[in-house]
C-alpha cells in the first residue's frame, strides 16, 4: 500500500469517527419521530423504533385547527428567504464602504456596528415591540425582514474582515483605469467575496429560519407563524404534549437548512478561482 492511500484511509477513518459524534442527536431525533409516543422517553437510548410508523408526521403536519405545516413552512421560506437576500445585499455594500472607502465618520459608524453586536436581545424585545407598534408593523412580516435590508452587524463585520484580506492593489489599479467605486465593488470585490457571501447566506437563512423570539412577539395570527413558533405551540408542560409530532416536525424543519447548506457550501470550498490575484 502506498503512503498516499494509507494517508487517505487514516484521514477518512478519522473524519468518520468524529462524524458519528456529530450526528448522534440528529439521528436520535429522527428515530424518535418514528416512535410510538410511549416509547420516546421510556426507551431513550434505543435508536431503532420498536413499531416504526408515520403517525407522528401525519398528526404533526395537521398543525392546529386546519392550519397545516404547509402554511408554516411557506411563511418560514418567505421570511428567511427575504431576510437572507436583504442581509447579503446590504451587508456587502456597507462592509465595502467601511473597509475600503476612507471618509470622515467611518470610525463612528463602525463603532455603532460593534455596539449593536453587543446589545443583548433580551432588553430589546420591549422597546422594539413598541417601535413596531408605532409603525403599525405588528402582525406582519416586516419587523422580521425590513431590518435585514438595512444590514446586520455580524455580517457587516464579517464581510469587512474578508474584504480587508483582498490585496488593495487590485481595486487601486482599477481606480486608475477610471472605474467608479460601484463598478469596483461589483466587478472586482464581489467576485472575490464568493466564499464569505455564501457563508453569510447560510447563516442568515439559518438564523432567520430558527429565530423564535422575534416572530413569537411580532406575529399574532397563527396563519402567519413560521415553523419555529409553530413548533413551540405544540408543548405545554401542564398538559398532554404530542412529543412524537414535535420531533417529526423538528426533523422536517431541519431539512431546508440542511439542503441550503449542502447546496451552497460548494461555493465556499471552491474558493476564489479568479486567478491573477497577485498580478
Amino acid at each position: 500500500m502506498s503512503k498516499k492511500t494509507l494517508n487517505s484511509i487514516i484521514y477518512y477513518a478519522f473524519v468518520t469517527l468524529i462524524a458519528f459524534f456529530m450526528v448522534y442527536p440528529a439521528l436520535w431525533m429522527l428515530s424518535s419521530s418514528f416512535k410510538q409516543h410511549w416509547e420516546i422517553f421510556s426507551d431513550v437510548l434505543n435508536l431503532i423504533p420498536k413499531e416504526p410508523n408515520f403517525n407522528n408526521y401525519k398528526e404533526g403536519w395537521q398543525g392546529f385547527g386546519g392550519i397545516t405545516f404547509a402554511t408554516f413552512f411557506k411563511n418560514s421560506f418567505i421570511i428567511a428567504g427575504l431576510n437572507t437576500l436583504g442581509t447579503i445585499i446590504s451587508s456587502t455594500l456597507v462592509a465595502y464602504g467601511l473597509a475600503r472607502i476612507p471618509f470622515p465618520g467611518r470610525r463612528i459608524i463602525f463603532m455603532t456596528v460593534i455596539l449593536t453586536l453587543m446589545l443583548p436581545m433580551q432588553v430589546q424585545i420591549v422597546p422594539r415591540y413598541i417601535l413596531f407598534t408605532q409603525l403599525g408593523w405588528i402582525n406582519t412580516f416586516r419587523p422580521l425582514i425590513v431590518p435585514a435590508f438595512l444590514g446586520g452587524p455580524f455580517f457587516i463585520f464579517m464581510v469587512m474582515q474578508f474584504i480587508r484580506g483582498i490585496p488593495k492593489e487590485l481595486d487601486e489599479s482599477a481606480f486608475i483605469d477610471g472605474a467608479d467605486r460601484f463598478r469596483i465593488f461589483y466587478h472586482i470585490i464581489l467576485p472575490n467575496l464568493k466564499p464569505v457571501v455564501t457563508t453569510a447566506a447560510i447563516f442568515a437563512f439559518y438564523w432567520s429560519w430558527n429565530d423564535f423570539m422575534g416572530p413569537l412577539v411580532y406575529i399574532n395570527s397563527p396563519e402567519k407563524y413560521p415553523v419555529s413558533v409553530a413548533l413551540r405551540a405544540f408543548s405545554d408542560p401542564s398538559a398532554v404534549t404530542n412529543w412524537g409530532a414535535v420531533f417529526a416536525m423538528s426533523t422536517l424543519s431541519l431539512i431546508p437548512v440542511l439542503v441550503i447548506f449542502v447546496f451552497f457550501q460548494k461555493y465556499i470550498v471552491q474558493g476564489v478561482t479568479t486567478s491573477g490575484l497577485r498580478g
Binding site: 392546529f64 424585545i125 420591549v126 415591540y129 413598541i130 413596531f132 407598534t133 405588528i138 423564535f212 423570539m213 413569537l216 412577539v217 399574532n220 395570527s221 397563527p222 413558533v229 413551540r232 405551540a233 405544540f234 408543548s235 405545554d236 408542560p237 401542564s238
Partner: peptide
C-alpha cells in the same frame, strides 16, 4: 392567537407594553 406555555407571558407582557 395561541402559543405554547414557555414564553407565553413574555409575549403577553410585551403586548401589554405596546
Amino acid at each position: 392567537e395561541y402559543t405554547g406555555w414557555s414564553e407565553y407571558y413574555t409575549k403577553l407582557t410585551t403586548m401589554a407594553a405596546g
